[in-house]
Design a protein around this nucleic acid. Structure first.
Lengths: 211, 211
DNA sequence: CGGATGATTCAACGACTGTTGAATTGGAGA
DNA sequence: TCTCCAATTCAACAGTCGTTGAATCATCCG
């Protein structure tokens, strides 16, 4: 059995139950192997979680750091919309991982928090760079706090991916996928109007985020 | 020992460790009693959580429904700011509660989902009423989707309460309390600009949210 | 003082947890 | 066919969990 198969199982079970709530026996059952085999491929439970992080975050970091290249002269609106698109497609295959990471940040053990921080910080910093460049180019209001604006943009996108497909269909007759699409568009329109130098300038046509 | 003292302890330990991570022995230690005593006052662990829910949600619901009274002619900005204040002070002491509620919504154990939904839906509907009235009074843009706008306002406020005090001090030298205060102000400024009919009209002086 | 009653503790059950050392399998090379 | 080594399983350890029945304590009533 390839370690990746164990990682697949861990991703599924972690996503359902969280790191603390997921037992190695449940992961092994999902993978169809003995719990002890996990210890042959991974040092311990936390290493399993770490390997799971390393499966998704490096690619996302690279995509966002390329986007933050100061020589990219496309409009800030387009680039920030692409931030949402990167979150959307890079994390689409990991339902549960997003909530999982959030949960471990809020109430996880200190070790896990450090594990997560060193992976998330570069990602946040790349988005922050795009916002800083937008301010310097006069496209965004100077009063905007780039750190908080980064937090707002990114956190709400994660809530739209995680929570909205569950919540909105209970309030309106929409499918989960449609909830995400409408949520992203409405959120970006609100956010852009909130930070843009000229809030009434029409948004450029935004490409559909890839799925 | 009064059952409220046990609830206090449960709230504290739930807040530190989450509901799944908090053991009844830890709660008993915090309360200074024997674990078995908890079973004298409460049916089981989940009943502890439910009692905790009923400690916070009814008051919040009432406060928000009063705020949504259509005869309240104060400015929409002021009333929406008060929504944030109500979330802030009513939920200040119950971080574990917020995380658990969100987790149960995302995971979707149907029974608990319904239990939570019947408590949360009236709260969301009250906020939505305020936004609807704002649109009718011409203070908010007609393009604003009131349901999504409610989701955005409330979810971000919860993220500011839960996540920002953990995240921001790792990025900037601020205390957790200061992170919440600055987060709320920056969020409301962005949000208001995003939904207001006239984004450049200065915000009325907003009162300090009570602590 | 005896007794009744509610509050509290004690000790233990069975189930589950992460983890590990020894035993077993399976297949490739000599 | 035998050997060797990696892959995999088995069985068990020590600990924690939620929960419970019996035992103890405190307090009030008669």
């Amino acid at each position: 059995m390839h370690p990746d198969q164990i990682l697949d199982a861990a991703q599924a079970v972690f996503g359902r139950l969280g790191v603390r709530g997921a037992s190695l026996r449940a992961i092994a059952r999902e993978a169809g192997c003995d719990p002890a085999l996990i210890y042959y491929h991974f040092e311990h439970k936390e290493a399993l979680f770490e390997a799971l992080l390393d499966r998704h975050f490096p690619g996302m970091r690279q995509a966002l750091e390329e986007l933050a290249d100061p020589s990219d002269l496309r409009s800030t609106a387009l680039r920030l919309w692409e931030v949402l698109g990167i979150y959307h497609c890079r994390l689409a295959g990991a339902p549960g991982l997003r909530s999982l990471v959030r949960g471990e940040i809020v109430q996880g053990a200190a070790g896990l928090q450090d594990l997560i921080e060193c992976r998330i910080r570069p990602i946040l910093m790349a988005v922050r760079q795009v916002i800083l460049q937008g301010i310097q180019r006069g496209e965004l209001r100077a009063q905007v706090d780039p750190t908080l604006a980064t937090f707002f943009l990114v956190r709400m996108q994660l809530e739209i991916l995680d929570l909205l497909p569950v919540v909105l269909p209970r309030l309106q007759p929409v499918t989960p996928d449609e909830a995400v699409r409408r949520g992203m568009e409405a959120w970006f329109a609100l956010y852009w109007r909130g930070i843009a130098m000229d809030p009434n300038a029409p948004l450029p046509p935004l490409p559909e985020p890839p799925h």
